[in-house]
Amino acid sequence: MPKIFKTNAEIATCGGKLLKLTHDSKETGTQMDVNIYLPKQYYDKSKKECHESKIPTLYYLSGLTCTPNNASEKAFWQLQADKYGFTVVFPDTSPRGGDEVPDDKNDWSFGKGAGFYLNATEPKYAANYRMYDYVHKELPSLLQQEFGSDGKLDFIKNKSITGHSMGGYGAISGFLKNYGAYKSCSAFAPICNPSVVGWGIKCFSNYLGSDNKAAWKQYDPCDLVKVVKSTNASDKVLIHVGTKDPFLNEHLRPELLLNASKGTTWEGKFDINLVDNFDHSYYFISTFVPEHAEFHAKHLGLL
């Protein structure tokens, strides 16, 4: 069987290896970069070749302008993946490609690097900007085909999701839209109500249509909590936001998610932690990665 992924680098780090990969995506119509960290448990020769329990996966969705390398280098997920025994997948934030992929070179918060984890419907962007189906459907399937065939890794059934900023919104939105598919969800400084803040309005308008507010609601966590029913008593979404985050009051607005969840089955299930003095950077993210890793490890059955 021909290989799906091209390995551009295989880097020993902590107790496992970080693989930097490229593959052709039918969803985006482009080549896509993705990094995966295989923890030390994957390489443990003392374990049986056929693991009784497969190594689960945590998907990490990055924020505006990021590539798969940002979190791979700065978030320090690898140490936690080794501690608990899960794989980490770092997808890209948008289709890339050349001039055939539409972009706004004058705006870092829209276009390439800012796919907003949705399926665009506006004709200019619909062919390439299909990051929702790419992240939640195509990529896990391709990873399972190539890396899960030996029975050690599980990219589809036992998985959780997290993300930062735009990726935090993408994680919460994807968790709710695929309720039951992910064992847990967390977010670092997420865009909580994109329909009413600048970054979200810009991306929703251009990708989905400025007048198509019904489509906006299909991705906005503050709308999804009203239509997606929580049926599991253990449901909880862990969120950290820094009080000195420069985007807190203009773009993130975590209080709007709390308000939207009131009177729904999600009331009391968003554990939003405002942490003093922290900003929007990877210094902030890496500080709270251990807490998020433990949270996901419990839900993935590793504790």
Rank of each mutant, 00 (worst) to 15 (best):
A9S: 13
E10N: 15
I11M: 04
T13A: 11
L19D: 02
K20C: 11
H23A: 14
D24P: 06
K26R: 14
M32T: 01
D33S: 14
Y37F: 11
P39Q: 10
Q41G: 05
K45W: 08
S46T: 14
H51W: 07
K54R: 11
K54W: 01
I55N: 01
P56E: 00
L58E: 02
Y60A: 12
S62Y: 12
L64K: 03
T67R: 03
N69S: 13
N70V: 10
N70C: 13
S72L: 09
E73Y: 10
K74A: 15
K74L: 15
W77F: 15
L79D: 13
A81Y: 06
K83F: 00
K83W: 00
Y84M: 00
V89Q: 01
F90D: 05
P91D: 04
P91W: 05
D92F: 02
T93Y: 07
T93P: 09
P95G: 10
R96P: 03
D99C: 12
D107V: 02
K112I: 10
A114T: 03
A114V: 04
G115A: 01
K124T: 10
K124Q: 12
V135S: 11
L139C: 08
L142N: 09
L142C: 11
S149A: 14
L153F: 06
F155T: 07
N158H: 03
S160C: 10
S160G: 08
G163M: 13
G168I: 04
A171W: 02
S173L: 01
N178R: 03
G180A: 09
C185R: 05
C185Y: 04
S186Q: 08
F188S: 08
F188H: 09
G198V: 13
L208W: 01
G209M: 00
A214N: 15
Q218A: 15
D220C: 15
P221M: 07
K226S: 07
K226C: 06
K229P: 01
T231G: 14
T231M: 08
V237A: 02
G242A: 03
T243F: 02
D245V: 00
L248D: 00
N249P: 00
L252K: 02
R253G: 05
E255K: 04
N259S: 14
N259F: 07
S261D: 01
T265I: 12
W266D: 01
W266Q: 04
E267L: 04
E267I: 09
G268M: 10
K269H: 13
D271S: 13
D271G: 09
N273S: 06
V275L: 13
F278K: 12
F278N: 05
S281P: 13
H292V: 14
A297L: 00
L303D: 15
